[in-house]
Structure formats: C-alpha cells, structure tokens
C-alpha cells in the first residue's frame, strides 16, 4: 500500500485535493476533486483493526493530514458511524472500511485522513 503521506504535497492544488479521493480497498468514490481543503492537526484515530481483548479501549494512531469537508452532503459516498463522544467516524459506504476519518459534531465539519484513502 503506497503511503500517500510521503508525497502528499503533490496531491494538493490551491489548498484542495487535486484528484478523486477513493476507498483504498474497494475504490468507492468518496470525494471528487477540489471538494476537500487540506488541513493539518494531530488526532488520535482508532485503527481499522482492533484486538478483541480491548474492545472498550481501542488502539489508535496519531494522524495529522486531513481533507476538511464543511458540509456532509459534499461527499459522494460515505458512511457515518454512531456517535462516540463528540464524533462520528467516517467509513467507506460500500465495504464499510474505516475509520477513514471523523466528523466533529459541534462544528459539523468532517475530516478525511489522507493516509486512510487513495488518490486517483
């Protein structure tokens, strides 16, 4: 799996995503070009796979590169998980792989992690 984080700058054009954002596993279309705004901050995103022994305390990784989406209907296809704290997690609408990012309920903004999707 190529890590887009290494080359992420080539994916940005005028602060937006240059190419389509798709699911890494089934290629479902998530965002069309220039609909996500590049943003960088630190967030502990749960890993897609979790060990069965610690259900209540999921393993996370620090993720820092995101496509910010102001309005949820900007997405072409996406799933929203049930609420956890102030967030809903984003998933692929087809194969349900996720989290591919998260939705912040107070601000109504969604953030797609560059490392959890493919750019094509």
């Amino acid at each position: 799996m190529p890590d887009c984080n290494k080359n992420f700058e080539s994916e940005i054009k005028e602060g937006k995503n240059l190419r389509n954002v798709k699911c890494k596993y089934c290629s479902s279309l998530i965002l069309t070009p220039s609909t996500g705004t590049f943003t960088s901050f630190e967030f502990n995103l749960p890993l897609m796979k979790q060990s069965k022994v610690n259900d209540s305390n999921p393993d996370t990784e620090n993720v820092s590169l995101f496509w910010a989406v102001n309005e949820m209907y900007t997405f072409q296809n996406v799933g929203f998980s049930n609420t956890v704290g102030d967030n809903k997690y984003l998933t692929c609408a087809d194969c349900e792989a996720g989290p591919i990012g998260f939705h912040d309920i107070p601000s109504k903004k969604s953030y797609v992690a560059l490392s959890r999707v493919q750019h094509v």
Binding site: Y25, P46, L47, M48, K49, Q50, S51, K52, D55, P58, M72, Y73, F75, N77, V78, G79, F80, S81, N82, T83, V84, K88, Y89, T91, C92, A93, C95, E96, A97, G98, P99
Partner: peptide, 21 residues
C-alpha cells in the same frame, strides 16, 4: 466487508453505522 478474523474485530463494526450518504 473489511475483514475480521479470530483475533481482530473492526472498529466500525463494533460501534455500528448510523447512516450513509
């Protein structure tokens, strides 16, 4: 579906999906 196995579960299947767009 993003695969599960004997030792791992997926984070999303544990919390469930609310809706899709």
């Amino acid at each position: 579906r993003f695969s599960e196995d004997a030792f791992n579960t997926t984070f999303i299947s544990t919390i469930g999906i609310d809706f899709k767009i």
